[in-house]
Write a protein that binds this DNA or RNA. Structure first.
Lengths: 181, 181
DNA sequence: AGGTGACATGTAAGCTTTGACATGTCAATC
DNA sequence: GATTGACATGTCAAAGCTTACATGTCACCT
């Protein structure tokens, strides 16, 4: 039960979409799950083939331009449910930003400030993107019959909060360095 | 210039330690960089060999039990500096916790609450660990001549803040779900 | 003298991930 | 009629990473 995450993400998106092609899923990955999990089409297409072989998804129909439309099977739904309910969270977070932060005291304060400045700019941009995503999602009225919490909202909220936290950290770190210099 | 991060982390630790064996670095990884970057000894030993070949580190001496003591070269220092100053941050954050959060609305509120409960317990434990690390580091008085900011402090602070943010998010998410149920 | 456990280094198989290559369809514009 | 660009699917090689295997030293305890 290791390295299931790509499968799970795909099953989740498929559930949300009802049915979709590999291409759709790849685009969906970029749009909605990107801040949570990344995968290119070169990973997605083979994985969908394996998942088909394992009976988690099926090719429901084939459209124009060789388009294959997948949908989730009941087995797939069971797998997804089991993972969500039974998976122990492991906190890896291999983060380049955090690594940079870790090593920052190796530079002299002036240089460290420059690095933090760039990092801050990056984080600000990312925050703007996430907030735009949130705004776009909530601009439309809630469709009838939908539950209160939209799919992916919790994760987007988490992403926004963490990005804000990083920004605050960068500001405080800069202030601390300036006091020293 | 991709996938340098392991190298950089090793060069950083070596700078901090002055000199160290692969074994020391592996232990140091567990203790101090783990929340920022992970690597087992089976990755560290071969990488040190490659770095030696590339002239970034040298085997300064060989001690008991086949122990090899590495130190950083001026080339290594240059590489580390260049990365820190010139590296554009890329925000991957492939996070299983965030993925779980993303998919949570697929469960019904009761089940989702259970998942959040476990997640919260995990995050609380992690927070306690990080805070214990901070306390341990700052219990000792600052050694003479040292700069104000200790090595790794900024990253630890960032980690603590982000873990706290995740905890707050979990609490709010749970409250929101309870209101619905 | 023997056992345990921390110290210490490595290799190998297998999986995931990335980036580049490769191919072809269809719609719209020039 | 030709070109461009989004649509659409795939493969492959190389790099990264994890897990397990494999070996040996040294200190301490019994």
């Amino acid at each position: 039960m290791r390295g299931m995450s790509l499968r799970i993400a795909l099953l989740g998106l498929l559930t949300a979409y009802g049915s979709a092609s590999g291409y759709d899923l790849a685009k969906g990955f970029e749009r909605s799950v990107a801040h949570v999990w990344q995968a290119g089409h070169s990973q997605i297409y083979p994985e969908l083939a394996k998942m088909t072989a394992d009976g988690l998804v099926t090719v429901e129909a084939e459209g124009a331009r060789g388009r294959k439309i997948y949908s989730i099977t009941s087995e797939g739904r069971a797998e997804l449910r089991a993972w969500l309910i039974g998976h122990d969270p492991t906190g890896p977070a291999r983060s380049e930003v955090a690594l940079q932060a870790f090593l920052l005291p190796l530079l002299d304060p002036g240089e460290a400030l420059d690095v933090l400045e760039r990092l801050k700019a990056y984080v600000e941009q990312k925050l703007a993107e996430l907030e735009a995503m949130w705004a776009a999602k909530h601009a439309l009225p809630v469709p009838e019959g939908a539950s209160g919490v939209k799919f992916g909202d919790l994760a987007l909220d988490l992403g926004i909060r963490q990005t804000r936290t990083t920004l605050e950290w960068a500001n405080d770190a800069m202030a601390q360095l300036e006091r020293q210099a």
